[in-house]
Amino acid sequence: MASFDVPEFDYTRYSNRQLAAVPLAVLAVALLVLTGSFLATGTPVPLGMDFSGGSELTIQTTSSEAEIAAAFDEEPESIQAVSAPDSRNQYVVQFASTDLESLSQQAQQNLEQDGDADIVQLESTVSESFGAQTQQTALLGLAVAFVGMSAIAFLLFRTFVPSIAIVISAFSDLVIPLAFMTVAGISLSLGTVAALLMLIGYSVDSDILLNNHVLRRQGDFYESTRRAMQTGITMTVTSMAAMLVMGVAAWLFGVELLASIGIILFVGLAADLMNTYLLNLSLLRWYKFEGVRS
């Protein structure tokens, strides 16, 4: 795998509290954002149709988004433009209502007056109860993945501080992208849950790499850290570049889900860099030089 020179960082200039201050402050802000959203809307992150229920129409028309919104009695939850094979634009329109037949009739009556609209596809509706059940299943999957990751960390290192450092970093790697989703208005869906699950894997990989170099390989603490950073930062930055390219390309071609996954992974990987080489490393250094090892 190709690599690049990681800039030298003099950790000796900073105390453990100084290293941990930045990632902990970012984590605190992220928790405040999620708490505020929960108090204001009832959910910490906006829920997509997969979890909240609703209906979806795919319409091909020359009408503008404003004209499409005005064509329905109910205000659409979202209107997403996608590519179409001819000069007309294709839109995916989502509603909170599950009355798909009524929505289809409104589209045909109000958008086809000039003969310029087609209902390309009628997506099946998602009931509110089914969406809630899907939401519980997805959150359970995230919880099981996180608990499993935590158990693996404790089994690998069998000591509290190095293991809890991995768990705290992984927790922050999840919370920060969730807060970003709230601020950016990215809905929680089955696709974005998959991105969050991937972040758990990325996080545990980089943290275990650092812990393994520092605790199990011979050499000075800072030299071991340098070797871990050379490999870990190369892997993470390469993945960030790939996710950014995917997100931008998907956004240009109107593929909203892939764009959301790409930007969530990019933000999560950036958070992972910060948490691994500031928060996790500060806990490891305290454990190596000041803590009581068992």
Rank of each mutant, 00 (worst) to 15 (best):
A2L: 15
S3L: 11
F4H: 14
E8V: 12
E8F: 13
D10F: 02
A21I: 03
V26H: 01
A30C: 04
A30F: 00
L34R: 00
G36P: 02
S37C: 05
S37R: 14
F38R: 09
A40V: 01
P44Q: 08
G53K: 15
L57V: 04
T58Q: 15
I59D: 09
I59V: 15
T61C: 07
T62Q: 10
E65T: 14
A69T: 15
A70T: 11
A70H: 10
A71P: 06
F72P: 14
D73L: 02
P76L: 06
S78D: 15
I79D: 11
A84Y: 10
P85Q: 11
D86K: 11
V93S: 12
A96E: 13
A96C: 01
S97G: 12
T98R: 07
L100R: 09
L100D: 04
E101Q: 13
Q105R: 12
Q106M: 09
N110R: 09
G115I: 04
D116K: 00
A117C: 03
D118N: 05
I119P: 06
L122K: 05
E128T: 11
A132S: 13
T134W: 00
Q136Y: 05
L139K: 11
G141M: 12
M149N: 00
S150H: 05
A151V: 15
I152K: 00
L155H: 01
L156Q: 13
F157R: 07
R158Q: 14
A165E: 13
S169R: 07
A170R: 06
L174M: 11
I176N: 04
M181P: 06
V183E: 04
L190R: 06
L196H: 01
V204Q: 02
D205T: 13
L210N: 10
H213D: 09
H213P: 10
L215E: 08
G219F: 02
M229N: 07
M229K: 13
T238E: 09
L244T: 10
W251D: 07
L252N: 11
F253T: 13
G254W: 09
L258M: 12
A259V: 04
I264Y: 06
L269Q: 04
A271I: 06
L279I: 00
L281I: 02
L283D: 08
R285L: 00
W286N: 04
W286P: 02
K288W: 03
K288M: 05
G291C: 07
V292C: 06
S294D: 15
